[in-house]
Design a protein around this nucleic acid. Structure first.
Lengths: 204, 204, 204, 204
DNA sequence: TATGAATGAGCCTTCATTCAT
DNA sequence: GATGAATGAAGGCTCATTCAT
């Protein structure tokens, strides 16, 4: 296949990813502060010192994890909604994707919804850029909707953007905290519908 | 013998409150994990050992803090909306209160929106009950709205409840993370309006 | 007696001294870099964390040890030579004291002559001041000798000062490294005599 | 098969020297304990693993460095003083050489005067032999001086030897620690003169 | 009750050394 | 021989908790 051979002059390019994947599983189990670096190493099948060849500190693992997943996430959303014309359909698509991705990655969901909420490290820190990129995507779709006359002209866009994100986020968090006892994706339709009626022009 | 007098068998009834208030200020400054028990003690003007006369562990301070504030909060909301007849006005009242309380208590807001988000300790732990009480309040108002024909009959109540909470919560979080650079209460009206249009019967 | 009672509002004032004394014994045994902080704690009969109530770092123990002993040393020398009139007798006194003190404190001698020689940490660092105070004492005695016509007028004082210190220091080091197999104090008379003849006016 | 050609059974004969030279530069910069084996490797332009083909441990680099330089040094001194007849001139030569060599090799001087002073590893360990060879050279010159009637008959030779070494050593150390802000070689004449007057027969 | 010095378990990180290539 | 990624033991330091006063 490809990528099978690793030059001896190059650090294993898969290691950082393996470490991040292991970290997701470990953090999902016990939380960031309760996880030891050596736990991540064991989960990744490497020595703990090896982690420090790829990450400067334990914190950096978490920050990198978040940035990477968030960047992947935004790229995915952008790609998927590009296929849609209708701004309202785009909103529905975003909500559906948001829930689908989390539902398909329970460990990641656990980490994102529960562990990554220490604002001091994340939303406020190095990851703020990635988060706001997602907000930007949502907001620009809303702007499209306004331009297309499908969303009311006087909608406070920033407020509506945060509302939609907050709504999706809370549904996801409740689902995670409730041990994922139902299907998150089933919430996509009602969430989108309520939001769109809320922001729509006339009655939509 | 009971009542106002402090017998030698009764701890100072103000101390726990002083400790919690000090903890709010300390956590707001540096976060829970970065704050030392001794920091709280110093802020409260007592010795660190004294804290352990009133709280078994550091964790318990945070849990108690959260439960207490949440209980106060729910009680306040219940009291305030009792004065309203109209279910929709009740929703508006809830949103307005939610933002007003946070805006008036910046330290508490910081702690609640940023520090208390480690689900392992809170939403999932001992505090789940207090959180769900707030959800219950919201949901029962929505039910009233349905009964009064002001909210659409087929609304998935749990989803809508979480959406409203999530929307308010995200607005609050963004406001805190954005260093509170604007007035949170100004968002109350648009948030309520969008939500109510989203869930309202006909076009409302 | 005095000093017997320790107020509960004051850290034990003897602890730092106890720690330093324990450190001298431990460093004498195995060297600074081979000694663990926990070794010092055990030797002092306290918990390792307690050390950090009195010293910020392991390094600080060594620096403090050195400064304190050096300051005591210079004070002792100053006091003793004050009793002498004759500058040459003062030099003899310094040499005798130098060797006597080291001979009477084998552990301290070991640490001072062997462990404290990492210039980066000591002679060049925070302890430079204490070392130069000793040099100052020697040099001012030499100046007295010149003024009294007992030491040759054209003597390069700084060079002579360093020579005497270096000579004493090497004798002490050799004695320590040679496992103290003979009496260091016996070297005092010849060292002083040779030095004084070297710097003396006429033939002395 | 032996001689100039490097068979596959013989390690590169220049490597150890390159490593030692690199080590001198590295240790001079940051000290032995603060230098990493990988720093030495980088400075030598090789991989860190390669160092272990030539040295069993990091310690061995330092010991070898010291032995080698000390052996070179003793050989040089022996060669140079052989040209002199007069024992007193030989002493002057030794002092002049001692300072000249150090002045011409600032990195080596730094390492020898500052880094190599951890007696546990060096003076007391494997390097004791090389050090004593230098002492032997000095002492035998003094013996010559006694035999020639130029040095007093009752001089305690071992003490005088150590004094001269200690004096030179301290001058060198002060010069290194003082950032080499003056010419060390200028101290050679006064040091020799004072010492020789100190040990000389009559007034010399 | 209140104190705060003392405790000691716990963990991140470093870095000398190894070894598969 | 040469490489450098991987190893994992080791230890300085922190801080929640205890307890003698």
């Amino acid at each position: 296949m490809n990528g099978g051979s690793v030059s001896k002059f190059m650090r294993d390019p898969d290691k950082p990813q393996q470490i991040i994947d292991a970290a997701i599983r470990v953090f999902a189990r016990g939380g960031y502060y309760n996880s030891r670096v050596s736990d991540i190493a064991r989960e990744a099948g490497i020595a703990s010192g090896t982690i420090y060849l790829y990450f400067k500190t334990k914190d950096e693992i978490l920050v990198t994890l978040f940035r990477e997943k968030m960047a992947e996430w935004v790229a995915l959303v952008r790609r998927e909604i590009a296929a849609e014309r209708d701004p309202l359909a785009k909103i529905r698509k975003i909500v559906a994707l948001h829930f689908k991705v989390l539902e398909e990655s329970p460990d990641l969901a656990e980490v994102v919804q529960v562990e990554l909420r220490q604002g001091h490290k994340f939303f406020r820190g190095a990851s703020a850029h990635e988060v706001s990129a997602y907000f930007d995507v949502i907001q620009s779709v809303l702007e499209e909707g306004v331009a297309a006359g499908r969303i009311r002209r006087d909608l406070p866009l920033k407020v509506a953007t945060k509302m939609l994100f907050g709504a999706m986020d809370q549904l996801a968090t409740s689902w995670v905290l409730g041990k994922r006892g139902y299907r998150l994706t089933e919430a996509a339709e009602p969430v989108a519908t309520i939001f769109l009626q809320g922001v729509g022009a006339h009655g939509v």
